[in-house]
């Protein structure tokens, strides 16, 4: 189980954190990995802070408990940095990826973080450009796989097509793919 990766997604209800956790898992499955994707179910509603989780491993995943020490944390909403302990349980060599207009150095200062790698991307703008709506989940997955190499982009796009084609019009599916590709290119490191 040592090579299992745990990802924690912080979002607000309606931003697609649950969908993001599942899309990542689904794409990892296409690479023959074992996966889990689950969300915290409380009194969450549109706009309220919520968390979602993805586990990815080459070996079968047997545990069914909460994620407390994730290797990767993804923050879909910049305002959560002030209200939620997004870096809680994140290890010194962990990865923090934030949707914000700020630079990684500014985020580090704001959160007063010592270790871990910090990346930022303006996913809200990318989503607005590509989708016409500020739903940052798919570009954030694009940025995530750039900085972690957890899965291949082509598998993410394949999974996204499979899942979204059932629900959305072709232009929305295309817009999401474009958003993934742009975030993959635009994500900033320190």
């Amino acid at each position: 189980m040592t090579d299992m990766i745990e990802v924690r997604w912080h979002g607000r209800g309606g931003q697609g954190a649950k969908t993001a956790s599942q899309l990542l898992a689904d794409a990892a499955l296409d690479e023959d990995m074992y996966i889990q994707a689950f969300s915290e179910y409380g009194p969450e509603r549109m706009g309220a802070p919520m968390q979602s989780f993805t586990r990815i491993s080459k070996e079968p995943i047997t545990i069914h408990c909460h994620v407390t020490n994730p290797e990767v944390v993804v923050v879909l909403d910049p305002t959560l940095l002030r209200t939620v302990d997004v870096a809680g349980g994140l290890s010194e060599d962990g990865t923090l990826l934030v949707n914000t207009t700020k630079s990684p150095a500014e985020v580090r200062k704001e959160l007063n973080l010592k270790g871990c790698k910090i990346y930022t991307v303006d996913a809200t703008r990318i989503a607005t450009d590509c989708l016409g709506r500020p739903i940052p989940n798919t570009p954030m997955i694009g940025a995530l796989i750039k900085v972690t190499a957890l899965i291949k982009v082509k598998n993410l796009i394949k999974g996204l097509k499979k899942k979204f084609s059932k629900k959305f019009k072709p232009e929305i599916v295309e817009g999401n793919i474009k958003a993934v590709e742009r975030a993959y290119e635009e994500v900033k490191s320190e």
């Binding site: 599942q22 898992a25 689904d26 499955l29 990995m33 074992y34 996966i35 889990q36 994707a37 689950f38 969300s39 179910y41 995943i61 069914h64």
Partner: peptide, 12 residues
């Protein structure tokens, strides 16, 4: 099957 843990958790 355990509620939420299994019912809502996505697995292989």
């Amino acid at each position: 099957l355990d509620g939420f843990i299994l019912s809502h958790g996505m697995e292989r």
